[in-house]
Design a protein around this nucleic acid. Structure first.
Lengths: 301, 301
DNA sequence: CAATTCGTTCAAATTATTCGAACATGCCGC
DNA sequence: GCGGCATGTTCGAATAATTTGAACGAATTG
């Protein structure tokens, strides 16, 4: 073990304080102890780290490289130490939260702010998933906690908590024939028009369909912004979450249509694998369950 | 110093060999020595790294994090050790090569391949400089070795070695009036047309002019690709290095014009600060001096 | 030129680490 | 179910390592 963190810390102190003597003072060790440690390392590496020709010792080029890049090593060691302590204290090293792509990202911001304010170094990953993709991510372990719509997959192993009901508004471009119907639309009326749908991200679970008919012509896109853009551009029609549709309709970029039997709705759930525990999981379950987090997005459950 | 590289290496061996006993064998130490080191680290961190409830010790989650991320630390330490030795043996930690922007990048590729094949950790930076900018980079220390055109700056301190002569072809867009001259062009004839020139990157040395007249209208761009694009787009005229002009002329994207008194030429030099030494410098001086490196770019010197 | 600061050396003291033997525990084959 | 085995730990002794403080020579400072 030619390098030791202890010796790298000595180099660091020598550089910062400017001399062996002052570094020794900072480290509460005798100067000869530093001499010993440095010579030890020089012998192991078979490299001179200091130029001792003058009165005071100066770093050689090699010594300077070891000093500077050693600092990165010391920093990484410090980080690892913190991380280990936190994992031991129950905080997960990594935590993945999957959010249904139909939901806005904004409500997460204050939540993440609050989480980071705890000072934990748990690394958060937020991923967007579509339809069954959220459940898929959960059961496959790609996500530790999901906010997903529709019924959870059978076979259990998943704990859920209902969050609220998302209402959809069927939207068409301004001037579209469907906007002139004058009465609530039915599926039969809509079937002739191209639907813009978001591709399900599920890789293992059976795909779901939502808001479109099997024989309807359709344009498939990856996410909600793409769907919105496509509908704005007049490439097709389709239902949008109310929180999004409202601003678009108010801005005149889309027209909302009534739907026969009332607007479609879907219940959304918070879900995690049963049997898992961790303080980040607990924290996020509690935080996301708080009423008001998704204010303006969900109706009362 | 709660973490030590030695202890991390012990964790690594325990995981790879599957038990304290076999790890001890690999490390040529008694098993109780490993127990001691692990307990030491556990005490410093105040974290249990192994679950000792069963027959054989198993990593706790915290222990596993420390193990896995500790391996990255061990790897970095090994790299730093190599690098320190290499620097001590004369290889520069960093090496900056400035290449005149009028020259193609391609000849450097096999050279860099060969350099990296040496297994050195010297970090190479290649920068493009224009006209006096190369010399400026050299004397100011921003570059350790340059391939630059024209006379080196006075005041010495710089060693040079001629590499070859770059020939320029005066190019105009297809159909341009100058292309119909029928005889070699003179500066007076060209002066009325906008010249596309590359801005000198020098920050301290006096700027140079090349290939254009003081009173000529001009469009200044940053590099050779921009100059080429501008000339192709018919924004102006100007001399291009022969290696570049030939393909453009052959493709019909530009037209080459004869120049009164023969095409302009400029000698290019390899140059470095005298008094500096280093194995990367030696290596690159030797490699770039090899005949054939710039084949097709330079004429014989 | 004296006073100071510096880094090193050396022997002694102290501390940390290692070892080996003894022990307790759980696993496996019979 | 019951020895045999391999495991990891404990403990005291042995060994190796680090640390200390005093002394020294060299370079710097006022």
């Amino acid at each position: 073990m030619p390098l030791t963190l202890d010796a790298l810390a000595i180099l660091d102190a020598i550089d910062r304080r400017g001399s062996f003597a002052r570094a020794a003072e900072e480290l509460d060790r005798a100067p000869s102890s530093l001499t010993y440690a440095v010579q030890q390392m020089e012998a192991e590496l078979d490299v001179l780290l200091f130029d001792r020709s003058g009165h005071r010792a100066r770093f050689t080029p090699a010594g300077r490289v070891l000093l500077e890049e050693g600092r990165a090593l010391l920093g990484a060691a410090q980080t690892l130490e913190n991380r280990t302590r936190q994992v031991a204290s129950g905080w997960e090293p990594r935590f993945a939260l999957a959010l249904e792509a139909l939901l806005p990202w904004a409500p997460l911001v204050p939540l993440l702010d609050a989480f980071y304010a705890l000072g934990q170094t748990t690394e958060i990953r937020v991923r967007q998933e579509v339809l069954a993709g959220s459940w898929d991510a959960l059961v496959s372990g790609c996500a530790d906690l999901v906010v997903a719509g529709g019924a959870p997959p059978p076979g259990a192993g998943v704990r859920t908590r209902p969050l609220g009901v998302l209402e959809f508004v069927f939207c068409v471009p301004p001037g579209h024939v469907l906007s002139r119907a004058g009465k609530p639309l039915t599926q039969a009326e809509v079937a002739a028009h191209r639907a813009v749908v978001i591709a399900d991200t599920a890789r293992n679970l059976p795909l779901r369909s939502a808001g479109w008919l099997q024989r309807q012509p359709r344009l498939t896109v990856d996410d909600l912004p793409a769907k919105l853009a496509a509908q704005q551009a007049g490439l097709g029609v389709g239902a949008l979450p109310r929180w999004l549709a409202e601003t678009e309709i108010a801005a005149g970029r889309l027209v909302g249509c009534a739907w026969a039997g009332g607007n479609p709705r879907e219940t959304f759930y918070l879900a995690w694998r049963s049997g898992e525990s961790g303080r980040a999981l607990d924290w996020f379950v509690r935080a996301l369950s708080q009423p008001g987090v998704f204010a303006g997005v969900f109706d009362a459950e």
